[in-house]
Structures are given as structure tokens and as C-alpha cells.
Amino acid sequence: MQNVKSFLNSFLEYLQIEKNYSKYTIVSYTKDIEFFLAFMEAEGIETLKQVTYADTRLFLTKLHKEQYSKRSIARKISSLRSFYRYLHREQLVEQNPFALVSLPKKEQKTPRFLYEEELQQVFEVSDLTTPLGQRNQAILELMYATGIRVSECSNIQLQDLELSFQTVLINGKAKKQRYVPFGKYALHALEAYLGDGRLTLLQKGKADTKTLFLNARGGPLTNRGIRLIINKVMEQTADHIRISPHVLRHTFATHMLNHGADLRTIQELLGHENLSTTQIYTHVSKERLKSVYMDAHPRA
């Protein structure tokens, strides 16, 4: 299996250098492929060239017997399909045995989002007379205004902000950049934080930093820090309101769609590579339309 390991290392280098995949994604690919290599060894399959479509069906049977979720199975098959596609491109194998394997249909969960009345309660929690309150409000307003991911929020630098144009440069997945506009509420929250709260927090730090959002010690705020802030805000709102960074992202997309934005625009703002990922929000909109209809129509 020595050649197999070298092929795997070559593929991982390709993902890192040519595809610009994150470390987390590469680790996931590695685990999925190594899992299959262990299956090959158990089945007495010595080389990647020897794997047939029948072997892939046997592999699928093993995954089902071990009660892997549909999502895990789909990810493993997708990883192996990409691996073999690379091997075929490099002429290391003659065919891709995973090319015809059907992925199990994912269970589509309707994204959770907040109604506009619920969202208003979230924006009334922070104490705007304190540096941390100003920071928290700026985070909430900006995340709802732009629909950015928590990792994208923590990575924003001062030079990424264009307050006069009300836009922010976002460094998304796979090092892809996009400009996202934001409205007056986010603008006012950012101006208050930058002109007061951030200056106070910066004085507590040991070194100057250009990261937009700072922690209580004056250093860059991490992904985990933002999640903790949002959890704390959640505890201070009504019991039935449950928010998270991703709920804010879902809320942004749902509200945009409900107020007339087209899917292509929402796709670009969210940084989705495929429109199919964005289309899940049409289900949310339809559910809301149905709910309004049932409540309002006299003969519903």
C-alpha cells in the first residue's frame, strides 16, 4: 500500500496548492480516504487500480451496516470521487469507480431564522454606554446586515471597511473575496464602536492590532469569542428566541428573499459557490407565505 500513500499525499498537496482548500477540509478528505484504504486492506485489494464499481457497492453496504448518517456517507463518497478524478487526470488509474455511485439524498432541514419582531428584541440587549456593549451591537448589526459567517466576521480588518461607501471586504472560503454592502443601522453601530468602544479596548492590549473586533483584553476577537457573545445575548432575550451566528445568516437571507431580492444576488452576498445552496431559502419563504395565507384567507 506504499504507492497508495504517496498518491494520497500528492492529492492532498493538489487540494492545498491548486484548490486553496482549508486545513479543516483537507483533514476531512484525509480521514475519508484513509477510511477507504483500511477497507481496501481488509478486502485484500492491493492497488487503487483494482477497485471496481462492485467494490464501491460493497463499501456502501459497509457504511450502511455501521449506521453512518446519510450526510457522512455522501461526504465520504464525494471525497473518494474527487480523489479518483484526480488520479484519472494524472493517468494513475484507468477509470473512476465512484463516478456512477449515487449519493444518498440529504435530509433537508429548513433553516431556522428570526422574525423581524424577534430580531428587534436582540438589538435591544446591549448596553451602548460601555465599550463591550458597543462592540456587541456592532457585531450583531453587521452580521445581520451582511449575512457573513462567524469566521469571516472575526477576520475583518480595519482596512476592509469602507464606511463612506457602506461596504466591507469579506475574505471567504477558499480565499475567495467579495464586497458586501451594509445599511445605516450597521453603519451607526460601527461608527459608535470605532469612535469610542474600540479605542478604549485597544488601550488594554499589549500591541496595536488592525483587527476590527477586539476582546476585553484588547486583542483580536476569535470565532469562539463571537459565539460566546451571541450566546450571552440570547440568554438576555425572551425565552423562545434562540440565535446563533448561523441563525443571523439564515435570517439575513430569508428577510432579503421575503422583501424581493433575487436568488442570484443573495447567492453572491452569502458567498455561496452554487445556487443550489441558496435555494433552500425559497422553502423558508414558501412556508411563510403559506402561514400568512392560512391566517389571513377567510376560507383557508
Results as ranks from 00 to 15, higher is better:
F11P: 04
R112P: 07
I33M: 01
S126I: 05
L158C: 11
Q95K: 06
P181I: 09
L169T: 09
I73L: 13
D32R: 05
A38H: 10
E268A: 15
L199D: 03
L194D: 11
L114V: 06
M40T: 00
K31Y: 12
R217P: 06
G147C: 10
K109V: 14
A300P: 15
L128C: 13
T167N: 11
E141K: 01
V180Y: 15
T209F: 01
G271D: 03
N231D: 13
G197Y: 05
T110M: 13
G133E: 12
T200G: 09
L221W: 00
A54K: 13
A42W: 02
K49E: 10
Q159P: 03
T167D: 03
T110A: 08
R224C: 06
K76S: 03
Y179W: 12
V101N: 07
E162M: 06
Y21A: 01
S72M: 14
Q95N: 03
Q267K: 15
G271S: 06
V122P: 14
Q134I: 01
S126C: 14
G197Q: 02
Q279W: 05
H297G: 14
R288W: 08
E34Y: 10
R227C: 07
K206C: 07
K105V: 00
N258F: 06
N223V: 11
A54P: 07
V168F: 04
G260Q: 15
C153S: 12
G260Y: 15
L87A: 02
S276C: 12
L263A: 09
D127A: 04
V150E: 12
L163M: 13
I77L: 10
V247C: 01
E107V: 04
E287F: 01
T30L: 14
Y24E: 09
A253D: 14
V292G: 10
N3Y: 08
L228I: 08
G225H: 11
L269Q: 05
I77P: 02
D160A: 11
P298T: 08
